[in-house]
């Protein structure tokens, strides 16, 4: 059976594409799938450091597309999680070295060798974005609950529709306490504005930064709420479509809530 290429994209930068790609890829591999994670952010590679594989890069995705090496030579095997591979971006090239036809050819080859191929798209809607969506079977749009990220998500959703992709949405960096206080858009607000199906909800979580400091997989940390949320997203992508979406809740004590409400505490 052929594998599936899933692109993770956002329009706005810094909303969590790379984090989501590494977590969803790792979680799918933990589910027993053969997974390739591809960094399409040419010239600004990051997935390698987030995954802690930066010391093992030999070839990259540009080498593969330009036929300077085989996929098996560029794919770095993760030694902590079985069946997880990273194809890094090139750091020296410019985004224009890739052609859409070249990327499409490589996507076809990848589908033959892997169950899931997760592509980390660059920010923006230019050439690099086009290249990362051209080979995709499915798309996930990620945004944070703020006005500019949601607006950019809307633009990207429109562009994906025009390429016959029906994306699903991840809302990342949700802070339940602030949603509760009416300071942050709730996921219901975001969904209503964008009218799109949900892939999942991910809370703000300190473990994300800590695990990217050390390059260790977030999904292996049971105490990471974001890691667990990404695991559920992966299960949904892996056939458990009916797995309910968990809404992040605040772990604040009742007393803290009361005192905060009355301005006794910040």
């Amino acid at each position: 059976m052929e594998g599936k290429v899933i692109v993770i994209t956002s329009g706005k930068g810094g909303v969590g594409k790379t984090t989501a790609t590494s977590c969803i890829g790792a979680a799918l591999a933990l589910e027993g799938k053969r997974v390739a994670i591809v960094d399409m952010d040419i010239g600004l590679r990051n997935l390698d450091v987030v995954m802690g594989l930066e010391n093992r890069i030999v070839f990259n995705i540009v080498d593969v597309v330009l036929e300077r090496c085989k996929i098996s030579q560029a794919a770095i095997r993760d030694r902590r999680i079985e069946n997880l591979f990273l194809i890094p971006a090139s750091q020296s090239d410019n985004k224009d070295v890739l052609t859409t036809s070249g990327v499409e050819r490589v996507a076809d080859q990848l589908r033959k060798e892997f169950d899931f191929i997760i592509m980390d798209s660059p920010a923006g809607i230019e050439r690099g974005f086009e290249n990362s969506i051209v080979g995709a079977n499915e798309a996930i749009v990620i945004c944070t609950p703020d006005v500019s990220a949601v607006r950019d998500a809307d633009r990207v959703i429109g562009l994906l529709y025009s390429r016959s992709l029906t994306p699903k949405l991840i809302v990342n960096r949700i802070e339940p306490a602030r949603v509760e206080r009416g300071e942050m858009l709730s996921h219901e607000d975001v969904l209503e504005v964008l009218s799109i199906d949900l892939a999942g909800l991910v809370p703000m979580d300190e473990h994300v930064l800590i695990s990217s400091n050390t390059g260790t997989p977030l999904v292996l940390q049971n105490e990471s709420t974001a890691g667990q949320a990404f695991k559920r997203i992966a299960r949904r992508l892996n056939g458990e479509a009916d797995l309910p979406v968990q809404v992040p809740v605040c772990k604040m004590s009742m007393w803290n809530k009361i005192s905060r409400t009355f301005g006794l505490k910040r």
């Binding site: 703020d146 509760e180 009416g182 300071e183 709730s186």
Partner: peptide
Amino acid sequence: SRLLRRFTGQKASKDTAKKRL
């Protein structure tokens, strides 16, 4: 907090965010 907002008639900033969006 929502209850309190209802009493004071204060508007949540996220409602403004949603309208603007």
